[in-house]
Deep mutational scan, measured.
Amino acid sequence: KHICAICGDRSSGKHYGVYSCEGCKGFFKRTVRKDLTYTCRDNKDCLIDKRQRNRCQYCRYQKCLAMGMKREAVQEE
């Protein structure tokens, strides 16, 4: 069993190059498709875990990228 590289929830498989849960997969897809931009209200180092993953979209998206999620993979779907 794999866990989500972004928030630690149960992974549903590899999405956009990274083991991730449905929540983070959908979040990344929406962000890329709609070309959304986020801002962090703190120091750009918010904790992203299962409980708090919805608290800061900026940091969640940065963690998706840092863990290796690929924007191109969304476009190719």
Results as ranks from 00 to 15, higher is better:
I48V: 14
Y19Q: 07
Y58I: 01
Y58V: 02
C56Y: 02
T31F: 06
T31P: 01
M67C: 09
K29G: 13
D45V: 09
Q57G: 13
K29I: 04
C21V: 00
K1Y: 04
Y19V: 06
L47N: 05
G23M: 02
I6N: 02
I6D: 01
S11Y: 05
M67A: 12
H2S: 12
C46W: 02
G8H: 07
A73D: 14
H2D: 15
D49G: 15
C46P: 04
D49E: 11
G17M: 13
V74S: 07
S12T: 15
D45S: 09
S11R: 04
L65F: 08
A73W: 10
H15E: 06
K25N: 03
T37L: 07
Q57C: 08
M69K: 02
S11A: 07
R33L: 05
H2V: 04
C7P: 00
A73K: 06
C59A: 01
L36G: 13
L65N: 15
K50P: 09
K44F: 09
I3Y: 07
Q57L: 10
M69R: 00
G26S: 05
Y19G: 03
G23K: 04
C7K: 00
T39L: 07
I48P: 10
T37P: 15
D42V: 03
D49R: 03
G23T: 03
T37G: 14
C21E: 01
E77N: 15
K70V: 14
Q57I: 03
E72G: 05
G13C: 01
L47W: 11
F28M: 13
C24P: 00
T31I: 05
S12K: 15
V74W: 06
R53H: 12
R10I: 09
H2M: 15
L47V: 10
A73R: 08
S11L: 04
K70Y: 14
T31W: 08
G23Y: 02
T37S: 09
N43L: 10
Q75P: 11
R33G: 10
I48D: 08
A66T: 11
C21S: 00
A5Q: 13
G68W: 02
V18E: 12
D45A: 07
M67R: 11
G23I: 02
G23W: 10
I3T: 10
C4A: 00
E77G: 15
R41G: 15
G13K: 15
R30C: 02
T31M: 11
K1Q: 03
G23A: 06
N43R: 11
H15T: 03
L47R: 05
E76Y: 10
C64Y: 02
R41S: 10
N43S: 12
C59I: 00
R53I: 12
Y16G: 12
I48G: 10
L36W: 09
D45G: 12
L47F: 12
A66Q: 08
G17I: 03
R71H: 10
C40M: 01
T31L: 04
T37E: 14
G17V: 02
Q57D: 14
G17Q: 05
C21Q: 00
C21N: 01
N43Y: 08
C4M: 00
H15R: 08
R10D: 07
M69E: 02
G23R: 08
A73Q: 08
C21I: 00
F27S: 11
G8M: 06
G23S: 02
G8W: 05
G13H: 13
R53L: 08
G13S: 04
D49Q: 13
D9R: 03
G26A: 11
V18D: 03
G8R: 04
V74N: 06
G23H: 05
L65Y: 12
I6M: 08
F28H: 02
A73F: 10
R10H: 07
S11W: 06
Y58D: 14
I6E: 01
D45R: 11
A73T: 12
V32P: 02
R51H: 07
Y19I: 05
K50L: 07
E22M: 04
R51L: 13
I48F: 05
F28I: 02
C40Q: 01
S11P: 15
C21A: 00
K1W: 02
I6F: 01
G68N: 09
R41Q: 14
Q75C: 13
N43E: 14
A73H: 11
N43H: 15
V32L: 06
Y19F: 05
D9V: 02
Q75V: 12
Y58M: 07
C21W: 00
S20I: 13
K50C: 04
D45Y: 07
R51V: 08
S12I: 03
V74K: 15
E72M: 06
D45H: 06
Y19D: 08
K1F: 03
L65E: 09
R53F: 08
T37M: 04
G23V: 04
R30T: 04
Y58E: 14
D49S: 08
L47C: 07
S12R: 15
V18Q: 04
Q57F: 05
G17Y: 05
R33M: 11
G13N: 14
I6K: 00
G68F: 05
L36A: 13
S20M: 09
H15W: 06
Y19M: 10
I6G: 02
D45E: 14
D45K: 15
R33Y: 04
C59P: 01
K14Y: 03
E72F: 03
V74P: 11
E76D: 14
G8K: 07
Q57N: 07
C40S: 01
G8V: 03
I48S: 08
I6H: 01
Y61N: 15
E77D: 11
R53E: 15
K29H: 06
M67W: 07
K44P: 09
Y16I: 10
T37R: 08
C59T: 01
D49A: 12
L36M: 07
V18Y: 03
C4N: 00
C40Y: 01
F28W: 09
R10Q: 11
C7M: 01
K1H: 03
C4F: 00
V32E: 13
Y16N: 05
M69D: 01
G26P: 02
E77P: 11
V18W: 03
K44T: 15
G17S: 09
G23L: 02
K1T: 02
A66K: 14
G8C: 09
V18S: 02
R51M: 09
K44G: 14
A73S: 11
A66H: 14
C24D: 07
C40G: 01
D49L: 05
N43P: 06
E72R: 09
I6W: 01
Y38L: 12
G17C: 11
G68D: 07
C56F: 03
K29Y: 03
C59K: 00
Q75H: 07
R71K: 14
K1G: 03
G26R: 09
L47E: 11
R53M: 06
C59W: 02
H2Q: 09
K44S: 10
H2I: 15
V74T: 11
G26V: 12
K50N: 15
K29E: 13
E76H: 10
Q57R: 11
K50V: 14
Y19E: 07
I3R: 03
Y38H: 13
K29L: 12
C46K: 03
